[in-house]
Structures are given as structure tokens and as C-alpha cells.
Simulated assay, not measured.
Amino acid sequence: MAGTVKRIEHVGFIGCRSLEYVKLSRNLEYGENTFYSCWSLTSIFIPQSCRVIDRDAFRGCKELIILHVPQTTELGETIISETALIESSPFETEYRGEYDGNDEEVNTSIKNMNGNDEKYALHRACSSFDPQTDTVNVIVKSKGLAAFQKENALGITPLHYLEENPLADIDQRILVKRYILEMMGETI
């Protein structure tokens, strides 16, 4: 998506059932019912510039399991109804994945998917809109390479976030090489 795009209007991509991948504009500010029923969409990374994701934005995205949303983004009602994400969550849902009445709690959970503690620091770094190699390297250096395989509550690893993130320009092989050299006292 071009960097000039600031809004995705009502039902912008509704029913794009084969849509698997979207690289959003870094300047995106708003979307409503944006990806309704995009069955094949598995992940989406919202930019820091996005102020509002309105009602039902990802409703019916049956395969959606990864959703990164900045803390500052306002979320509307039932944005993840009928998704793999709500089905994998601890929240009670009604018919067809509805969670009416729990919007505030679910939306808070979406924004804090990887918590704030040190346990999921690598998950947070890898799931951010624009992950930085140096940040990821510092965390891997302190936690070890096995941290890439640690699953969060939804069963997602940091490596999976990097693989799904369209803005991730991080080569795991280079990270591993850098890690090994630094552990041996070498510099790059």
C-alpha cells in the first residue's frame, strides 16, 4: 500500500477471500469494516500512525491469528469476531464468534497480546510494525537463540512474527551469525 494512504474507507477490502498479505501504509490513520470476510488473511501489523480501527474491521477473517495494534490506537466493537484470534483467546464467545459486551476487555487483550514483562520481550520486538535488527539482537543476546522458539499464549513464536511481518527486514541467519560471533568475543 502506498505511503500516501491515510484512510481505508468503509468495507475497503470486504470479501477479498484470497487476500493473504497486506503491507499497510506507514501513514494509515483510520479503517472501518476494512477487511471484513477476508478469509485467508492470517496476520496484520498496524502502524503507529493509526488512530482508529473501527467496528468489525477484521470480522470474518477466519484465519487471522496475528494482530499487532499499537497501544495508542482506538479499537471499535467486535473487531475480531469470527477470527482464529478470538477463537484461540480465553474469552467466551456467542454464536459465530460474537463477544458483545466484552469489547473493552477483548480490545485491551489485543493490545497486550505479549504482555509487558520481560518474558515476551522478543515477541513484542518481532511483532512490532517495523522490527529493528539491533533491538532483536540485544534481546536474543540476553535470552539466547532458543527464545526464537518460545511460544506465547496463542502458540506464536517470535520467529513466526518475523516470518509474517511484511516490514520485517531481519534475516535470522545473519542474527544467528552475529550472536555466535558476539558470544565468542568477536565484533561485526
Results as ranks from 00 to 15, higher is better:
residue 4 T to I: 12
residue 4 T to M: 06
residue 6 K to L: 11
residue 9 E to R: 14
residue 10 H to E: 14
residue 11 V to L: 14
residue 11 V to W: 09
residue 12 G to M: 01
residue 14 I to Y: 12
residue 23 K to C: 08
residue 23 K to M: 06
residue 25 S to C: 11
residue 27 N to Y: 00
residue 29 E to C: 12
residue 31 G to C: 09
residue 34 T to L: 03
residue 36 Y to M: 07
residue 36 Y to W: 13
residue 40 S to I: 01
residue 40 S to D: 14
residue 41 L to Q: 01
residue 44 I to A: 03
residue 44 I to V: 14
residue 45 F to H: 07
residue 46 I to Y: 08
residue 46 I to R: 07
residue 48 Q to F: 08
residue 50 C to L: 04
residue 52 V to S: 11
residue 54 D to G: 05
residue 58 F to C: 03
residue 62 K to M: 08
residue 63 E to S: 15
residue 66 I to H: 10
residue 70 P to M: 12
residue 70 P to D: 02
residue 72 T to L: 09
residue 72 T to S: 15
residue 72 T to Y: 00
residue 74 E to G: 06
residue 76 G to P: 06
residue 77 E to W: 11
residue 78 T to V: 05
residue 81 S to F: 00
residue 84 A to V: 02
residue 84 A to G: 04
residue 85 L to H: 01
residue 85 L to M: 10
residue 86 I to N: 02
residue 87 E to N: 10
residue 89 S to V: 01
residue 90 P to K: 11
residue 91 F to Q: 01
residue 92 E to Y: 03
residue 94 E to S: 13
residue 94 E to T: 10
residue 95 Y to N: 09
residue 103 D to N: 12
residue 103 D to W: 11
residue 104 E to V: 12
residue 107 N to I: 06
residue 108 T to P: 02
residue 112 N to T: 07
residue 112 N to E: 09
residue 113 M to T: 13
residue 116 N to C: 09
residue 117 D to A: 10
residue 118 E to L: 09
residue 123 H to E: 07
residue 124 R to N: 09
residue 126 C to K: 07
residue 128 S to D: 13
residue 131 P to S: 13
residue 132 Q to D: 13
residue 132 Q to M: 04
residue 133 T to K: 14
residue 134 D to W: 02
residue 137 N to F: 08
residue 141 K to T: 00
residue 142 S to T: 10
residue 142 S to E: 13
residue 142 S to D: 10
residue 144 G to M: 11
residue 147 A to F: 00
residue 149 Q to C: 09
residue 149 Q to E: 15
residue 151 E to K: 15
residue 153 A to V: 08
residue 155 G to I: 01
residue 156 I to W: 02
residue 162 L to A: 06
residue 163 E to G: 08
residue 164 E to Q: 15
residue 164 E to R: 15
residue 166 P to R: 12
residue 173 R to F: 07
residue 177 K to I: 10
residue 177 K to F: 08
residue 178 R to G: 07
residue 179 Y to Q: 01
residue 182 E to T: 00
residue 185 G to Q: 11
residue 185 G to K: 07
residue 186 E to D: 14
residue 186 E to M: 13
residue 187 T to E: 15
